[in-house]
């Protein structure tokens, strides 16, 4: 595949979708329902503003979104209280599918949202975005409405524009550029078309979400990209430039943990790389250093990237949505 062709065909800018009236007409013609999911853990500073903007602009003014849900990991601040006060549906992750237990991690919330929410499309938006704007949702949802073959639309935030110093380098964050892009370049060169594979905002069709597993921690975005790519190919992806995103900056040590989790997720899919790595042989411990005065100390972090299975393997899900189980090999059976 000519990657430049793909980029020009499947890469968008949110301003292309300014006509929300048109978007809603097309949505209604297709009979689609759309859910907006905000996974949270202690986001009281930003959650109220996100809900106000999305509810006012994308539910009241332009009814693009049919439900706005906060799936919370057990915040100890006022996240859930504020979200409910501004009109979002608020769920505690541990109370969704309680029979499958509770695991801690953003991926767990995303996975449980597939069961709890009703939309044919689910748009996930992180709750820590300081400069939130309705474009963060409609910019990702619109390509799915206008392009039937597209299944998974990711956000990116840095525009490769010409500027006075020449061409501005564009790309993802530090973990993307140091870890994920080199891995993709080595093993899946086509996936390097994705400008920010780790961005936390994406809109996905239910038919995809229910068929892919969800690592509960750092690896969920990487796993999704690899699994969707293997199953549906590069044309299933779209990406939308949402301009700037202002959010909390993470420390290098936190990014180290993220990189470790992503690497484990990547290696767990080693079968598709042509090798058969047994993940049980690999360490689950990340070692980092911290220094106090003249003393250096090694800190160990246990990072196990547990995965939730594809949602359509759960009888509860198949019963709720009247679905058949379709295995990754394409064979089907009823619940």
């Amino acid at each position: 595949m000519n990657l430049n062709d793909w980029i020009s065909r499947n890469t968008f800018h949110h301003s292309q979708f300014w006509d929300l009236k048109q978007l809603i007409e097309d949505k209604e013609k297709l009979g689609l329902t759309i859910s907006l999911c905000l996974p949270t853990l202690n986001e009281e500073k930003t959650i109220g503003k996100e809900i106000i903007l999305f509810k006012s602009e994308l539910m009241d003014r332009y009814p693009l979104v049919d439900e706005i849900a906060v799936v919370d990991s057990g915040s100890i601040d006022k996240t859930r209280e504020i979200a409910a006060a501004f009109g979002a549906d608020v769920y505690l992750s541990s109370e969704i599918l309680p029979q499958v237990g509770e695991k801690k991690g953003k991926g767990e919330n995303l996975w449980k949202a597939v069961y709890q929410l009703k939309g044919d499309i689910i748009c996930y938006v992180d709750a820590d975005i300081a400069n939130i704007h309705p474009r963060f949702a409609y910019g990702l949802i619109a390509p799915l409405i206008y392009n039937e073959q597209m299944k998974y639309v990711k956000a990116f935030y840095d525009r490769p524009l010409a500027f006075s110093q020449g061409v501005r380098p564009s790309g993802g964050g530090r973990v993307t550029e140091i870890l994920v892009r080199p891995l993709f370049s080595l093993f899946f060169p086509e996936l390097t078309c994705l400008i920010q594979p780790l961005s936390g905002e994406y809109a996905v069709r239910r038919e995809v979400l229910e068929q892919i597993p969800f690592p509960i921690g750092y690896g969920v975005e990487t796993a999704h990209i690899l699994d969707v790519y293997q199953r549906w190919g590069l044309d299933a992806f779209g990406q939308t430039d949402l301009d700037q995103r202002v959010h909390r900056n993470q420390s290098t040590l936190s990014l180290g943990k993220m990189a470790f989790g992503i690497l484990r997720t990547f290696l767990a899919r080693s079968e598709v790389l042509g090798s058969t790595a047994d993940m049980k042989q690999f360490s689950t411990v990340l070692r980092q250093f911290q220094a106090q005065n003249e003393k250096y100390e090694q800190i160990e972090h246990e990072i196990v990237e547990e995965e939730r299975p594809p949602m359509n393997t759960l009888p509860e899900y198949r019963e709720k949505f009247g679905k058949e189980y379709i295995s990754s090999k394409g064979t089907s059976s009823t619940g």
Binding site: K49, I52, L53, S56, E57, D60, R61, G87
Partner: peptide
Amino acid sequence: RETLLANLVM
């Protein structure tokens, strides 16, 4: 309320 606040924020 949400309409007013959304206008205010934006």
